[in-house]
Design a protein around this nucleic acid. Structure first.
Lengths: 282, 282
DNA sequence: TGCCGTGATACCGGCACGGTATGACCGCTT
DNA sequence: AAGCGGTCATACCGTGCCGGTATCACGGCA
């Protein structure tokens, strides 16, 4: 059973994405004939036809679609392997922890303090990233561990340790009528024309349609809420960065949010294991 | 940023496992000098020394240990990619579901029935495997989805959908004094010389030391319990295969067991997605 | 029916991979 | 201390694969 070479997978992905041999070859910086040959060779080795070369164009077969997913995943893994190895060599005994900027400050502080007290603890570097970038950082080897939130972040492919489960709260401008309440339901805060819910960007950078303002970072969100132009739903620990002009009201029927420590599933790093152990004992 | 070739990774893993260039070369079926050269080349390309070539032998550096994990994971991924692609080509529109033999019969039946009723449902092949083999089957591409149990099975690296959470029960021989109870605690059933807890094999095939009998499959377990030679702790749905000579008593303080549907994290197969959707609606 | 554009084929050259021979170095033995 | 066995590195060479150029086969289109 001969194993696939990453060169073949790179070539295959290029063709599968372009659905055009000449353009794919150009993108790869090689000529078209060698590319055709490489793909044929790959198909022969697998014993599977990956493309239908119809007149009027090239299309993926079912097996081709499967291989496209798989190949991307393998190539990402290989790139991550190189990056992680390089990082391990240069920044010895150092962990990079990715976290959403500004969230879960107390929890992070507690984790770092507890870990620092461990014997043989590694230095920890904090990598602040925006909305859901932690998964990418973890996947491509720029970070060793990350703080993420269930059910918001995509945890697929990672190993996790639950750290903290908390209620969600509505963040309102202090003067608003709802701000006086001691608790709220989702129905009460949705579709209010006077106070729309702010919209975060999705992983691909787009926004889902809706009345609320599009926001990019927490500072902007804080400002908008303080001005009375929007409200937001966040987890309870966000209270730590609220202004005087903000009020947090618990939401009784919103799903609970669990903050987890996540790391690549196959990681066997001693330092990661140590951090996870202290996290589990928090 | 040049990407690693799987050939280099294969060579590296061989040397890292043997810690001996000549033996590794023999295992790879090549001569020693080309292997030395390939490793040097890899080290140059990464800009990282992976081995300490000390007198009295070769040892892995820290970065080398990292790369060993990563390389194994990438190679496994590449092998799985080939296998999944081949399977996709030969067994069109067919899903392979791995599950522990005999467990969760009702749940599986319900899932299969519900899925079969979906329009455009794929055929489903059931792959019965022993203790925790599902993870391997899923990882190496022999299965598309699996039924697994939290917290028993290692779910790292998979995407999951919770199906059913249930209590654990103690399975006792009908005549035993404890069998008359309506509930039990873990403390009450542990370390009983008259009725030891049966021991399952671990993933590596070994058994942890203890007084109970070593068992291999469910039939054997059922027999031993019926004979009054052992007891076992299982999840409540195991009741479906109990004999008349067995009694199941709920355990009040044992952790709950969640049966989940698991699939490779990066899978985007239409058929898997369909099965997951129906599973989520159960 | 030319013409363009597509992917496939034919052929060739360079280079990287693998093989053989040998070197450098170390530890062990006598 | 010198010889020996063992290990990895170096030197050198041949070959096979990869990639390039030229060209073919074929379909769509004016």
């Amino acid at each position: 059973m001969d194993t696939l070479e990453t060169r073949e997978l790179r070539y295959f992905v290029a063709v599968a994405e372009e659905l055009h041999f000449s353009r794919a070859a150009e993108r790869l910086g090689i000529a078209q004939p060698p590319l055709s040959r490489a793909i044929q060779q790959l198909e022969r080795r697998l014993g599977v036809t990956l493309f239908d070369r119809d007149r009027r164009g090239v299309t993926l077969t079912g097996a081709g679609r499967v291989l496209l997913d798989e190949a991307r995943s393998v190539l990402d893994g290989a790139a991550a392997a190189a990056r992680r190895t390089r990082r391990a060599a240069t920044t010895t005994h150092r962990l990079t922890l990715a976290t959403k900027a500004g969230s879960n400050h107390e929890l992070l502080q507690k984790l770092l303090d507890a870990y620092a007290a461990e014997p043989g603890a590694a230095e920890i570097e904090i990598l602040l990233c925006g909305m859901g970038d932690q998964a990418r950082m973890l996947r491509d080897g720029r970070a060793d561990v990350a703080l993420m939130q269930r059910p918001f972040d995509a945890l697929a492919g990672f190993d996790t340790e639950d750290l903290l489960t908390e209620q969600q709260v509505a963040i309102l401008p202090a003067g608003h009528p709802l701000a006086a309440r001691t608790s709220l339901s989702l129905a009460e805060i949705s579709d209010r024309p006077d106070l729309p819910v702010a919209r975060w960007p999705r992983p691909d950078g787009s926004y889902e349609p809706g009345p609320g303002p599009e926001i990019h970072d927490q500072a902007q969100l804080a400002q908008l809420i303080a001005l009375g132009h929007a409200m937001a739903v966040l987890c309870a620990s966000s209270r730590s960065w609220l202004w005087n002009a903000h009020v947090a009201v618990p939401l009784t029927d919103a799903p609970y949010v669990t903050t987890v420590l996540a790391w690549p599933a196959h990681s066997r790093s001693r330092a990661v294991a140590g951090l996870v152990r202290t996290a589990a004992e928090l």
